[in-house]
Nucleic acid binder design. Structure first.
Lengths: 241, 241
DNA sequence: TTTTTGGTTTGACCAAAATCAATGACGACC
DNA sequence: GGTCGTCATTGATTTTGGTCAAACCAAAAA
């Protein structure tokens, strides 16, 4: 397992100055903390590590620091990036045997993993934790449905714009009437996430740049100059009829 | 609200000979049943009714009989069918204000709806119900992720094949080395579900028919003659590496 | 039964995105 | 600071699936 090897490179004492801090963000009652900590498997990972966690059984994973992607593999080497996750996000990762899912590090990162079955059992005795988990799942389902809509109905331009808007909301630093992003993922990751090739992603970025909606510098920095225009491009309008 | 009007057309006494039966399929403890029943809103709907339930607040809906689709509306009249649901399925339907979701009847059907907030609160005092709800959400998330993969990575042929395999598993009657399906949804619904136009769906069906993998009769009946070949076409192979 | 209606299939054509192929640039490492 | 490898961009071409339009068929209505 890669994580172990990385944990050696980034010793736990550095990664987790206080083991309690990450678990605290789950918002559980005091009594639950100790039991959660007993359950927790801490994992540090280097950028690009795949198999960051042991998913021989389903896991609930909390991102303490850094960024990861959840990928699903289909036939013929095609992969779909199911999602990107950042500090304080948590993720339900199904066991590998049922679906070919895998968690990969985008940057050096710190994770806490709980075996899902035990996590859920524990949550049953703690209303707060249970509620948090439930509302997380509902949000995850909502986001996944939103992504289905994008993949099923939206054009390349709209998908790229949607992606950028979403990233701005999640990891953007406010800037003028937009945001500044430092994208930790490659163009391939982006393409695999929104169902496009890297070339198409690149072309759409160029067009958005030419339209004066974004500007880029280097491979990872994106400045969103006009967030309103970008949202327009993203085709956001849930119209209740 | 349509449901009320339909309920008049299909009186409750006919729809629900015993009000307890549907709730029972939630597998809750005896003590919870009464409280669930107090919460339940029964709705009958005619085929093609949209706005089958009142989703001014989020709802948990159980399909007692018939078939429904959950649709999401985007700009420019584009709609995505998030999923099809049949007897005993249950569905989390978010409030209309957050996302433009709507439940529509595909056939005459009978539903039981619970306001999500109260349902969840109730589930907290009943481990069985809570577990059922949780595992339902996990399965829903899994299926939604699977759909994302299909929409993001699969070709038209693979999507149609995937759709048929899924329907065979859910509502197919065994037949030779395949299954017989009576599809309650139109080609448009299918297209909106898998991100294709009706013409493309039709063409792919024709090709599958020419390949001897399926045969059709009328608008709704599909015989899957060779399920193995269909799965091959669907590009099913989660390869754990 | 005949008619009507609306969903479905088929074909011709078109557009969007994928593929193929170079070129260019960033960043890591020497 | 230079070199190399990887990733990103750009362009030419092909492919896939979408669009438009006509014909067809099944189910319901007259």
């Amino acid at each position: 397992m890669h994580a172990k090897q990385s944990a050696a490179a980034l010793p736990n004492s550095i990664i987790f100055p206080g083991a309690k801090a990450p678990v605290a963000s789950l918002g559980a009652e005091e009594a639950t903390h100790l039991r959660l900590q007993a359950l927790a498997r801490y994992a540090g990972a280097r950028s690009r590590d795949s198999r960051v966690i042991d998913n021989s059984v389903s896991q609930v994973v909390l991102v303490v620091e850094g960024a990861v992607k959840l990928i699903a593999s289909a036939a013929a080497g095609r992969t779909q990036v199911m999602g990107f996750y950042f500090k304080d996000d948590f993720i339900y990762v199904p066991a590998r045997d049922t679906h070919a899912y895998n968690l990969c590090a985008l940057t050096d990162c710190e994770l806490v993993a709980f075996p899902a079955t035990e996590f859920i059992r524990l949550a049953q005795s703690d209303k707060t934790l249970n509620n948090n988990f439930l509302s997380h799942l509902l949000r995850a389902l909502g986001r996944c449905r939103e992504k289905s809509l994008a993949l099923g109905q939206k054009t390349a331009r709209e998908r790229v714009a949607t992606f950028l808007v979403s990233m701005a909301e999640r990891i953007g630093a406010p800037f003028s009437n937009g945001a500044v992003l430092d994208l930790p993922m490659s163009r391939r990751d982006i393409g695999d996430n929104i169902g496009l090739t890297i070339e198409t992603v690149s072309r759409q970025m160029t067009e958005l740049r030419n339209a004066g909606i974004v500007s880029t510098s280097g491979r990872s920095q994106v400045k969103i100059l006009d967030l309103a225009a970008l949202k327009q491009e993203a085709g956001h309008l849930p119209v209740p009829t």
